[in-house]
Amino acid sequence: MARRPLPQPPVRLVGGRLGLWWQLFFRFGPPRWTLYMRHNWAGKRLVIAVPYVWLLLFFLIPFIIVFKISFSEVRLAMPPYAPLWEWVSERAVDVRLNFGNYLFLLTDDLYVSAYLYSLKVAAISTLFCLLIAYPMAYGIARSSPATRNLYLMLIILPFWTSFLLRVYAWIGLLQNNGVINKVLMAIGIIDEPITMMQTDFAVFIGIVYSYLPFMILPLYSNLEKHDFTLLEAAADLGASPIKSFLRITLPLSVPGIVAGSLLVFIPAVGEYVIPSLLGSTDQLMIGRVLSDEFFANRDWPVASAVAIAMLLLLMVPIMIFQRYQARELAGAK
């Protein structure tokens, strides 16, 4: 195939390091261009380059740096970590890979229990979220199109208001002299206020409350696509409503359940604000541990190791989520 000669990148003009980048970028040729692209390769590549370079610089490279620092030693300086390699002489590089931070994570009880606790909190919150969201999503999907939009608006509206303030609102409700205790005592169900603040319960409530729309929306968009004549067919064939729900609606909604659960579970594991405001100080979640290591102890290498360990833990769910997302968008086409 006849190809237009690639214009020479203006290396001399920009020179040095930037020139190298230019080279790298304009030389990697996609294996197959449509003609539309082939004739506008410069413009097209520029369009690709802008978001690509941004994400490489501010999303991917930061992770590499975190990864790198997680192997270095803490030091009283600014920045407070030792470089990984040092030129000891002109020819020799001294590389010091320090696995101590990771070893520390494994041996110190604080970290392991914080990880396990975070996973537990995230899992339980996700489950509650699902239990509350499913009937809601189902109810919306089965209502008339006009009211459907109204319901959706009501679900999304809190999301547009500040997340921080919504969590804060629960403090006023859950406190010992808060609204819930006042109401319960007024009705006479309880005599003593129940301690709800700084308990796991408060954290569950906070997470479920904040992440509920993220569970409802994927579930709704799945349930909305269901053909409800399937249920009529099942009823016609003699299945009871419960049975046809379990055998038809539930299996068909699995993709929505998976997407919603991941959207709640993954960020919940690293949640920082909710446990800080509502949770107890005895048992910390991993997000809090990370920020304490960083801000209070100024131990950047250990904080980095905590982050990398958290990423590894979440790698599988993140990848499942990405596959789901890619399929969703392909389906939209």
Binding site: I266, A303, I318
Partner: peptide, 21 residues
């Protein structure tokens, strides 16, 4: 991958990695 990962990335990790950058 880089456009979907931030949707679920725990905020503490994003914050830490950007500061280190």
């Amino acid at each position: 991958g880089m456009t979907t990962a931030p949707l679920v990335m725990p905020e503490v990790i994003t914050g830490l990695s950007l500061l280190l950058l």
